[in-house]
Amino acid sequence: MDQLVTIFWSAAFLGAAIRLSIPIMLAGIGEAISERGGVINIGLEGMMLAGAFGAVVGAHVSGNPWIGLACGMAAGVLISLPHGVISINLGGDQIVSGVSLNLVALGLTTFLFRQLFGITDQPQVPGFEPLDIPVLSQIPVLGPSVFSQSVLAYVAVAIGLVLWFLLFRSRWGLRWRAAGDDPAALDSVGVSVDRTRWGALLVCAALAGMAGAAISLGQLFTFIENMTGGAGYVALALVIVARWNPLWAVVVAVAFGAAEAIALRVQAVGVTLIPYQLSLMLPYVLTLVVYGLAARSGRAPRALGKPFVK
């Protein structure tokens, strides 16, 4: 029992929950926008991986994490372009196209990383260190957990708020939602469905790139092959649980981050009941359980994954 208390009620646990939620939060917000627009991205994982890679290269060359972040977002966008052409302009199968994106991203980042840095050289790059917010970070438990995060955590929450507002309160958002729910209606009022969907996809790709950067520049300060390790797939499930709402994506991401933090804490406190491989399995199992509970309650955008042909 004492062990359980040490695991859950501590600044270290809450801090880790938030820290680990940042990548899936950013990717989840992006995917919510994209799916609202009717484009599903199984390639979210690949975009994140490209982002993680681009960010490390950018930060390594420039010595500046912000330039690294920009490079990561650019890499996410760049690798999503074929997916956009195939699924939006050509009307191809979005799921299969996404799978191909993942394969290319994994192969390409592994290959390019070895070409650039060799097998032995593991570059350490400048990243985003935790930032103590004055006064607030002095609050017991909540201070060192919530208000001592890297700047990306605050950026992610702010993006969630802004995109929630745009999605439900702006003309842009109305168009995005129409493109995913009833593209024919959008087309009939003279708005290009293709262009609207491209907008939503590019927002998603940039955020997925940022999510990858949050892993490489916010957690490990280097690149490791396949370092996203399924976070993109978790984010895909997260979007369904969050009912395609960017604000809910923020909340659900923190819950998922907590699941991942449990896994890490279990290892750290040395709970011998569960072997560590099984604790690493926990986030995926919890994601499945939560997804299972929420699957029937939400309603997916009606034209999700369906190409629009005039």
Binding site: P82, V85, I86, N89, L90, G91, G92, D93, V96, S97, V99, S100, L101, N102, L103, V104, A105, L106, G107, L108, T110, F111, R114, E225, P307, V309
Partner: peptide, 24 residues
């Protein structure tokens, strides 16, 4: 590196999906 094999696989599928799309 053998990882280029993944790139081949991914590229093949991408071209395949494009070739079977509505537009094609």
């Amino acid at each position: 590196p053998a990882s280029t094999g993944l790139v081949v696989q991914g590229t093949v599928i991408a071209i395949l999906v494009a070739s079977r799309s509505a537009a094609a």
